[in-house]
Design a protein around this nucleic acid. Sequence first.
DNA 1: GCCGGCCTAACAAGCGTTCGTTAGACTAGA
DNA 2: TCTAGTCTAACGAACGCTTGTTAGGCCGGC
Lengths: 205, 205
Amino acid sequence: MAVETRRRQIEDAASALFRERGYAATSVRDIAQRLNLQGGSLYAHVSSKEELLWSIACRAADRFHGDVGPLGRSDAPASQRLRRMIRAHVGVVTSAQRDAAVFLHEWRYLSGERRQMIAGRRDTYEALFRAVIADGVTSGEFAPTEPRMSAMLMLSGLNGIATWYRPDGDLTPDQIADQYADLFLRALAVPAAMPEPHFTTRTIT
Amino acid sequence: MAVETRRRQIEDAASALFRERGYAATSVRDIAQRLNLQGGSLYAHVSSKEELLWSIACRAADRFHGDVGPLGRSDAPASQRLRRMIRAHVGVVTSAQRDAAVFLHEWRYLSGERRQMIAGRRDTYEALFRAVIADGVTSGEFAPTEPRMSAMLMLSGLNGIATWYRPDGDLTPDQIADQYADLFLRALAVPAAMPEPHFTTRTIT
DNA sequence: GCCGGCCTAACAAGCGTTCGTTAGACTAGA
DNA sequence: TCTAGTCTAACGAACGCTTGTTAGGCCGGC
C-alpha cells in the first residue's frame, strides 16, 4: 500500500522528468530530488532506471490499447469507428500526457527485449488504424487511398498533440479531437461529385 | 579547405548519431570514433558539443526556410502554394533526413540563447503554413477552419515522415508528398455539395 | 621551421548502482 | 507495561565508470 503509493509517486515524477528533459538527460538523482529523497533511496522501490522507463511506457501502452482498441474492433461503419478512436486517442494523449509522450518518444532508450516489446505494441496499435481505414476503403466509405500512409499521417498528427497541448489552453480535448476528426474524415471521404448509391456498397474490391 | 571538410565530416557524423541515439545519449567519443579519431581531437574543429548541435540545427533550419519559405510567399493561389510547400518540405525531410530529425527533435537540448533562436525559427516556419491556410480560407479556396490547428496537424504529419522514411523504401519523396498533399487539400477543400457561388473559383489542384 | 591535425593523458564532475547503517513504527511475549 | 525483535524507508558514502573538456607533445607538409 504505502509501498505501492511510493512506487507510483516515483513513476509519476520520472514520467514528468523524462518528458521534460528526455530519458538520457534525466539522472536518478533528479528523480529522487523531486520527492525529496536521496538518489540511492529509489532503489528500494525500483530495480533500475530502465525498468522505470519500462513501467511508464507499459502503462501508457495499456491505456492506448485499452481505450482505443475496442472502438476499432466494433462493427460500426469505418468512419464512425475512426471518429471514436480519434476521440479516445486524443483523450489518452491529453489526460496522460506525460506517460503518452514517454511512450511515443522515449521508448527507444529501452534495450533488448523490452524495447522490442514496446515496438511491437506500437506496431499493433498502428495496424489498428490501418485496418479501419482499409475497411472504409473496401466498403466504399472512403476514397481509395494507401492505408499505410494515411494511417501514419493520422497518427503523426494525433501524436503531435502530445507536444503542444496545454491543459490550461483554450481548447478542450474533445474540441481538438472533433476538429481533427473532421479534417481526417474529409480527407478520406469519397468525392461528392458522383454520390455513391447509398449504403451497403460492400462490393467494391 | 581541409579544415572545412573535416568540420563537415564531424557535423555529418554527429548528425547521424544524434538522430540514431539522441543528443544526450551520444558522447563526444562516439562521434570521434566514427571518424577514427580520439575524443579530444574533435576540439581542434569544434568548440563544444553543444555548438555542434547548434550548427546542425542551423543548417537544417536554413534548408527549410530556404527551400520552403519563398514558395509560401509567392502570389499563387493558396492551394497551389501549399502543394508546393509540402513537396519542398518533404524534399528537405527526405534528402537531409538526419539534419531534419535533429532540427525537429534534438534542438531542445540547446540551452539559453541558442535554444530560443531555434525555437524562434521554428515558430516562424510554422507561421508560414498558418498564413497560407488562412489566406486560403479568406479567399474562399478552403473551407473555414482553425489555421492554427490545421497547420499543426499538417506539420506533425509532414515531420513524422522524417521518422519512418527510408531511402531504399518503395516510395519516392515526391510520391509521398503528392499523396500527403492530396489528403491535406481534400481535408481543407470547401464541400462540393453546395458550391460557393462567386469568388472566381481558381481551379484547385 | 612553422603549423595544422592528431595523439595521449589527464582533469573534475557526474553517472547508475550498491551497501552498511539508522531512525522510527509496529508487534509479541513476559 | 516494558522490552526485544522485526520491518520499513531512507540516508549517505562509496564504487567503478563515463562524461565533456583541456593540455602538452609528436609528426608530416608547406
